[in-house]
Every structure is written in structure tokens, then in C-alpha cells.
């Protein structure tokens, strides 16, 4: 079943004091099935982040539409948008975005508190998640007291705790070393295997190799896509690298 469908998505930025227009997204079309783990790759400035922001409802599209569960996002009223973001989407950011004034536990519970969830419910959801992510020993510490890898796992826990329809991850390994990255990606893969849909934007071929499908985006549109299929992660990584090479060499020829 299709969970997320993106149709003819366009985004044009207009400079404030001139008529000069920048096309961030030309015409993006793709869809994500329920339970999929999709990576979006592309160079800086290719429009990845703009795309993710529109899906996250942090930004509006100039034209086109994003459907989640068949419902267009643009029809959501302003008043409901925060609740929608809280309940249906889970976010993992490159720079973690944890709050220093909350303990790890409170950081994870934040979206539930904002939704006014009963305390018993919050606590029953918390423990299995932190146990799975291996951060249960740290839940009473503050973010500045734990390592980067642990911080990102806290962010994943925060994204998971609302049982979102889809997790949106923006360069989740961007600020982590290779070991912590490996560990995080294994965790994300494990989460996906329990049926959680994940959409991730990344630069890293290694990170992308953990997903089931990779979309390549260039100059504001989807250029290419490959599936992992039955192959191993390493094999998939080679294919991703090849595709990237092809992409960039074609790019040079175009210019």
C-alpha cells in the first residue's frame, strides 16, 4: 500500500528584492510504500533538503502535492499542523536538535507531553524503546553529558515514541564518526524490519546502503533509482557508488 505519494512537486524561491527566481525543485514524482526504507541521495544544492522540508510540512510547495495515506498535506489547517507533525511524523536531524534543559528521558517524551498523553502511557512506551536503542542507562543524564552517537539514538527514540506513520531523517549520520554511524544505521534498519517506514536524506553511500531503495536527485528532480533487492549491503553500496559516478560524469558532460 502506498503511504507517501509525491506528485509533480515544484518549489521556486523568489529573491525578496528582485524578480530573479531559483528553482529548487523542478518536478518531483515518487512514492513510498508502507514499510519501505528509502534513501534520497544527491549533491549539495540538489534540492534534497527542500524536498524533505516540504514533506515535513516545514515549507510549502509552489505547486504539486504531497499525499500521506491518500490525504493531501496542503489541506491540513494551520491550527492542526503542529499536532499533525507531532503525531504522524518522526524526525531525526543531522545536529540532533536535543534540548539541553531536558534530561534524555524528557527529551524523548517531549512530543508525547505536547500531545497531553497520560503519564502511564508515556512511561509504558518509553522503556521498550530506550532498551532497544541501548540508552536506558543514560535516561536521567542531560544531552551535554552523552556522546554524539548516543545523542542521535536519543533523537531516534524521540522520533519513534509517537508511533509515527513515517520517520523523516535528514543526514542522521552527518555528525557521527564511522563506528557510531554504523551502529545508528543498524538500528534504523532494525526499526524498519519491524515495519516502520523510513525516508532518509543522506550524502553517505554507506548509510544509504542500509536502505531498500535509493533515489538520486539532481537539479530538482528524481534522476534515477535503484533497489537493493536480495543482494548484500556491500554489494548494494558498490552499485550506489557506481550510480553516483555515472550521475556526476553525466553532469559534467551536460555543462
Amino acid at each position: 500500500m502506498t503511504l507517501l505519494e509525491i506528485k509533480n512537486l515544484k518549489k521556486i524561491y523568489t529573491a525578496r528584492f528582485s524578480n530573479q527566481q531559483t528553482e529548487a525543485l523542478a518536478a518531483v514524482n515518487f512514492s513510498v510504500e508502507e514499510g519501505e526504507f528509502v534513501s534520497i541521495m544527491g549533491e549539495s544544492g540538489s534540492g534534497k533538503t527542500t524536498l524533505l522540508n516540504i514533506i515535513s510540512t516545514l515549507d510549502d510547495a509552489s505547486s504539486g502535492e504531497v499525499y500521506l495515506d491518500g490525504n493531501p498535506l496542503s489541506k491540513i489547517k494551520d491550527k492542526e499542523i503542529s499536532a499533525f507533525r507531532r503525531n504522524t511524523l518522526g524526525f531525526v536531524f543531522q545536529d540532533f536538535n536535543l534540548l539541553d534543559n531536558f534530561t534524555i528521558k524528557d527529551n524523548i517524551l517531549l512530543p508525547l507531553v505536547l500531545s497531553k498523553t497520560p503519564i502511564e502511557e508515556m512511561e509504558s512506551r518509553l522503556m521498550p524503546i530506550v532498551r532497544n536503542l541501548g540508552i536506558e542507562a543514560h535516561i536521567n543524564k542531560f544531552p551535554y553529558e552523552v556522546s554524539g552517537g548516543q545523542k542521535q539514538r536519543v533523537a531516534v527514540a524521540r522520533a519513534l515514541i509517537t508511533k509515527p506513520k513515517i520517520i523523516l531523517a535528514d543526514e542522521p549520520t552527518g555528525a557521527l564518526d564511522s563506528k557510531a554511524s554504523q551502529n545508528l544505521m543498524e538500528i534504523l534498519r532494525g526499526i524498519n524490519e519491524t515495519g516502520q517506514t523510513i525516508l532518509m536524506v543522506t550524502h553517505s553511500t554507506r548509510a544509504a546502503s542500509f536502505s531498500k531503495r535509493v533515489l538520486f536527485i539532481r537539479d530538482g528532480s528524481v534522476y534515477h533509482e535503484i533497489y537493493r533487492g536480495e543482494g548484500s549491503a556491500d554489494e548494494f553500496m558498490d552499485r550506489i557508488s557506481d550510480s553516483l559516478k555515472v550521475l556526476s560524469s553525466r553532469g559534467e558532460r551536460d555543462e
Binding site: S56, L58, K79, I81, S82, A83, F84, R85, R86, N87, F91, F93, N97, L98, L99, D100, N101, L110, P111, L114, S115, R158
Partner: peptide
Amino acid sequence: GKFQIMQKVGLDEEM
């Protein structure tokens, strides 16, 4: 900064 992060996670103006 904190409120900006919280808004990303779903804090609305009413809150």
C-alpha cells in the same frame, strides 16, 4: 533556539 527545535517536533503557538 529551544522553541525553534520544539516547533520542529510539533510545538504550536498556543502551547
